[in-house]
Design a protein around this nucleic acid. Structure first.
Lengths: 342, 342
DNA sequence: TAGCGTTACGCAAACGTTTTCGTGTGGAAA
DNA sequence: TTTCCACACGAAAACGTTTGCGTAACGCTA
């Protein structure tokens, strides 16, 4: 089992100096054509590849982007990663992905790990726990050490940096408006507890849409779900015998669960009750009936986030000092769960 | 914007040597208690963290595991990653994830990138293109340079290394047996083209089960799908007016698509036609009716793969020279799409 | 033949660590 | 006063690169 070949070994074999080998491989005119060819042939033969670690140390940059997301088993986040990878690879960057599993501690650990030499900058969506805890020291520390950070989706207002978000409130408003426009009047919302920023914003959008239509908001039509993993029972009892004609769910799981629950309660979708979700994942697409949703364009988010980060990494001082917030448009994806029937 | 603080800077500030600082931080008895405390206080104040890159270079290992998967937006693979991360983090390893996007070239590039210093070993599921092309030089090269590789799921028989697989044929047999046991006799299979190893194996399992029941295999009940993204039309025309009482789909998408197609063709599931899938993803779970499947236990696979790799990385010569193949048990997850009705 | 300019290469520093092997200082024993 | 031994610390090498600069050797001109 041979080790990886280094410049030093090539130099020794060929009885020249390390610098000669290095220069020859770079086709430097300093080195005679003859030597250059000899070195290159030898390097190819032994499959020489420069050691990235050594390069990183020397250049003080790693050419890799660290991505930290709350969950890896999550369609939306993986699509974002897809977008990040796309531009990163184009620009010669590597992508390291870590998941925080929605744990504050793991987020900190991962961030420190990557920050201590493994990545040049970060693309980050913060963990639930972090939003709850409001402790952002790890992010601020990273930034203060000169490493750019781009926040996306679950962002933090207090932190000044580049951000990529969707207009959650507007998207929710669009969703609600859609329901209103097809004649729904009694619209329930399934949302998250308020400390999840996106949940809160979407709730706001829902309320805004109602107000615009002069429909009074009713406390009993709003369900704020804490335990996402066991949302079914909560949703089931909430929806039981409720006098509504539409449900707006702030994520895919809630939407699908609501559909199932309503189904088993004997309601027809969309005839009796319309459903609209948020996030355009495979569940919404393949469910029967297929679910109307607000698409977040995850891949776009990833693309924009990566561009922002790379700009900052390669930019001059002017760019470095200015922070931008990119707002990705949402779009309504109409499917069967909100057919116009009234 | 301050840079990251290094040993050298601390040494300079405190007017001692670099080695003294390094030793002090490691609580070496060589250094006086007084100096030790001073150094540590200073290091904490400036939030000193050793530079991983420098450590990697010095130690000639990175303490990171490279994971390369065909698709990042894929539930099964992300669950595997979850398993890998779990044990990796326990053992102090970092995880770098790259997707090949099912492209041979990208697989090679990613592998070479990570191999040239960024990772100590690999956990890999090969791209479709690689299976088709049968070009494995990048994997063999990596191994010959002393970096262990663990293959999982889509493996390559010709390569000698640690492997983690499920018994695809057995799982398919279990699935088919299940259908037979509830009285189905005319079972169609939706599978992939043969060069996808898992597809072929699952087809074999299906045939084996039929033979065991003395049911002749019929060419017209087998659909080998090439273009997965546009499987719907193909499945639709295949299933049209076919005289069958069950469908076995080798993956989740095929199963769901079949269910939808049958639905729209006026068949009831499971009363008219039973459906069983492979891979226990969210689609199967949330579909109505929920789909019976063969669970691959993705997280388990990740756990075992990571353990194999770390064993090899940290093991002595004896372990290093022996290759193991771990077979993960599949299990039947019974749901509504295969109710016993006959 | 002395002086000069090329050519073709080597030296050494630097990136940030760790670790082995000195070494200067001080006090105590002889 | 000399010798010896802890003690506390520093120098240097090594990991694998890149690159500015120094310099032998050579051929040519004056």
């Amino acid at each position: 089992m041979k080790r990886k070949v280094t410049l030093k070994q090539i130099a020794k074999e060929l009885d020249v100096s390390i610098s000669t080998v290095s220069k020859a491989l770079k086709d430097s005119v300093e080195i005679s054509l003859d030597t250059r060819q000899k070195v290159k042939a030898f390097a190819k033969l032994y499959n020489y590849k420069p050691n990235n670690i050594a390069l990183s140390l020397k250049n003080r940059k790693t050419k890799t982007i660290g991505v930290i997301i709350p969950e890896i088993v999550h369609h939306f986040f993986t699509t974002v990663i897809g977008g990040v990878e796309k531009v990163a690879n184009e620009k010669g960057y590597n992508v390291i992905i870590c998941s925080s599993n929605n744990s504050f501690d793991k987020e900190v650990i991962n961030m420190e790990m990557l920050a201590s030499g493994s990545a040049d900058g970060f693309i980050l969506s913060v963990a639930k726990e972090t939003q709850l805890k409001k402790d952002y020291h790890h992010i601020e520390e990273t930034m203060s050490q000169g490493m750019p950070v781009v926040l996306f989706d679950r962002i933090i207002d207090e932190i000044v940096c580049d951000k990529v978000i969707i207009d959650d409130a507007k998207g929710a408003q669009t969703a609600t408006n859609h329901l209103l426009s097809i004649g729904c009047k009694k619209i329930a919302i399934l949302t998250t507890v308020d400390y999840i920023s996106v949940g809160k914003l979407r709730t706001n959008g829902y309320l805004r849409a109602l107000r615009a239509y002069d429909i009074p908001e009713k406390e009993e039509l709003i369900l704020k779900i804490e335990d996402i993993d066991n949302c079914e029972t909560e949703i089931s009892s909430f929806l039981k015998d409720k006098d509504i004609d539409a449900v707006f769910a702030v994520n895919e799981l809630f939407a699908v669960t609501a559909a199932k629950v309503l189904n088993s309660q004997g309601k027809r979708i969309p005839e009796d009750i319309a459903i609209i979700g948020f996030t355009d994942g495979i569940l919404s697409k393949h469910f029967i009936p297929s679910l109307t949703t607000i698409s977040q364009h995850g891949e776009d988010m990833g693309v924009r986030a990566a561009k922002l980060l790379i700009d900052k990494l390669e930019g001059d001082e002017a760019v470095t000092e200015e922070y931008r917030t990119v707002i990705i448009d949402t779009s309504l994806v109409q499917r069967q769960s909100t057919k116009k029937t009234k």
